[in-house]
Design a protein around this nucleic acid. Structure first.
Lengths: 349, 349
DNA sequence: AGAAATTATTTGATCGATCAAATAAAGTCA
DNA sequence: TGACTTTATTTGATCGATCAAATAATTTCT
């Protein structure tokens, strides 16, 4: 038993043919019960494991999905993608799928990598993250009819109700809408917002969540609403500066919502009155510090991605046009409420 | 051109045999220059890509390494392994290696997964992280003669100079020794240490780095040294509590070193005098907050791991006993110095 | 130049599984 | 029972590459 047993060995041991062994593994339904049991016993007894590469060569599918690992990002929020990766790997495992990583230095380089993995039959499809408007990767993948799903809606160019590719995204609007509502229900009226410059689609989406919720309640004038908003690039120091700015401009605040945990952490530092601050992404830092935060539910996103990738479409839109299966999934984030538990601010004063 | 071209197509186009095409790719040296060029031209022209699974089936090697992705850890320091994964993927890519992820719910389950991937010829070897004393995984891998390298030295059982398996680790002692020295050189005398209970080997290692450096300098009495140390489990709140404790017990401090960034972040919160605090792991949080921290140099670790895995040993010790190649690598971490830049503490007072 | 040694290239077999088509066995109905 | 379906199982070919051994081309040496 120098090497692993093969189907032939199992077939011999069970007194059946190779194909029957194969059938027991792939379409157990068509094998008579007693035969199946005999084969299964032989498999167990010999410790047989199918040779993945051999199977792939023949079936032309790898049961593997590729995902790019972003280069190290110095920033708290990078961990969202890491958590997504965790979730994806776990969920994929349950479906017998493997996750293969790769790196790329630019979108163009990434396309080369996509091609390599696809041509080498290494993967059945891809999961794309960090998509952006006019993303060349999605265009290329569609043109080459390669199965893929994006984590992130197709910003800009696309009509949400008839997307050109499959996607899953988190509803940032809903997240901030809910966070705003929660603050309002807790009695807050003057709720500030620290967001990103409107070049980022994601940022606009979140901002509208807050803005709409404030409008709906209507207990703040339009002029005040403008004062309650500060725009800055992401970062802890930027958050601190923005918070100081906000307090100066808007006067007393009942609560502050931020577009990211980085900003929220920064804001909290310039927050002697302990105004409740809510971040976004529910990063480990938020948990550690005791910040409320909007959680992207990466688990649900991962499940949705795999759903679309393995589901009816097989990761592609073209070729299954009549289906009623949804072509995208908008995941509702959930608000995690915390109360600065970890921060005994008294020691600071 | 419905499907991808194969070696045969290339051979036909270049007017040579299959094997010559194969040689051009795998042992270019034995092919005459002009023939090689002709084949390379054909490859480029047809856009030929070798079929990975077919190659694997024949060669019985996959050019893929497996690594387990830990279940989501709620903690700041989890990101070290994520960063290691980034680095590993990048380095592996340079050597034409792929990284395949898997998950497991327990060490026992992990062994099952290891077996599956190995038997299916999915991977050539493994990288193990988070090893611990008496780890059943390493035992099993050695017994089954499967190539692997651990990130983490074999704690306890093993003799470092003659290890039973290949490993790479970061010298926590050196990290804290250097951090202590740096503080001393900056004029600090009373340098506190917030560490973990001594059940954790890693923690003891770091603690000794501080302790030894303090001893060497000798400007603090042994009695004082005891007062300068606080032990607690990991966590931000715990760090805050430990810092308060430390200030109470040890009186005035010149600097504080911590066994983790979580503790350091916590400590910083109970630090109105702005005593320099140094953490460990150089997590994004440390960067964001402006904490000094000991960086584990995951890039070097990744390079070392791949070195051992693909090097002379081929990931195994048995079978290459005479080699002078080192069987392990101890990576020196590097101290990243920051100055609370992101934290304008004035706003707190 | 011609034999021997070296280098370059080709041929047939093979890795381990599944597909497609053929055969055997079991079940159905007049 | 015998012809006719339906279900179960087997056989031969194949996926795309590389290995091992055979052949062809080239170089070396006397």
């Amino acid at each position: 038993m120098a090497s692993m047993p093969t189907v032939t060995d199992v077939a011999l041991a069970a007194g059946v043919s190779r194909q029957t062994v194969s059938n027991v593994m792939n379409s157990p339904g068509i094998v008579r019960a007693d035969t199946r049991e005999r084969v299964e016993a032989a498999i167990a007894q010999l410790g047989y494991r199918p040779h993945a590469s051999a199977r792939r060569l023949r079936t032309r599918r790898s049961s593997t999905i590729g995902i790019r690992l972003d280069p190290m990002i110095d920033g708290i929020s990078g961990s969202v993608l890491d958590r997504f990766l965790h979730a994806l790997t776990e969920q994929a495992d349950k479906q017998g799928l493997r996750v293969l990583l790769f790196t790329a230095t630019s979108p163009e380089d990434e396309i080369i990598q996509l091609q390599r993995l696809n041509d080498g039959a290494d993967v059945d499809g891809f999961v794309l993250t960090s998509t952006f408007a006019g993303d060349p990767r999605t265009k290329w993948l569609i043109e080459n009819k390669i199965a893929f799903v994006t984590f992130g809606r197709p910003w800009g160019t696309d009509d949400v109700s008839d997307p050109q590719h499959l996607w899953v995204d988190v509803d940032g609007w809903a997240g901030l809408h809910e966070a705003t509502r929660a603050a309002q229900n807790a009695g807050a009226r003057r709720i500030g917002y620290i967001g990103w410059p409107s070049s980022a689609d994601t940022g606009d989406d979140r901002r509208r969540g807050w803005h709409d919720a404030m409008h709906e309640r209507g207990d703040v004038t339009e002029a005040d609403l403008t004062k309650l908003e500060v725009v800055t690039v992401d970062g802890v120091a930027e958050g601190t500066a923005a918070m100081q700015d906000l307090r100066r401009r808007a006067g007393p605040l009942d609560a502050v919502l931020c577009a990211s945990d980085s900003l929220a952490l920064g804001a909290m530092i310039a927050n002697p009155e302990r105004v409740p601050v809510t971040g976004y992404d529910n990063t480990p830092v938020a948990a550690a510090i005791g910040l409320s935060s909007v959680d992207q539910s990466v688990g649900e996103v991962a499940a949705g991605v795999l759903d679309l990738l393995t589901g009816e479409f097989g990761g592609q839109i073209h070729g299954a046009p009549e289906s009623l299966q949804p072509r995208y999934q908008m995941i509702r984030p959930r608000l995690v409420t915390r109360a600065f538990a970890a921060i005994p601010m008294e020691v600071l004063a």
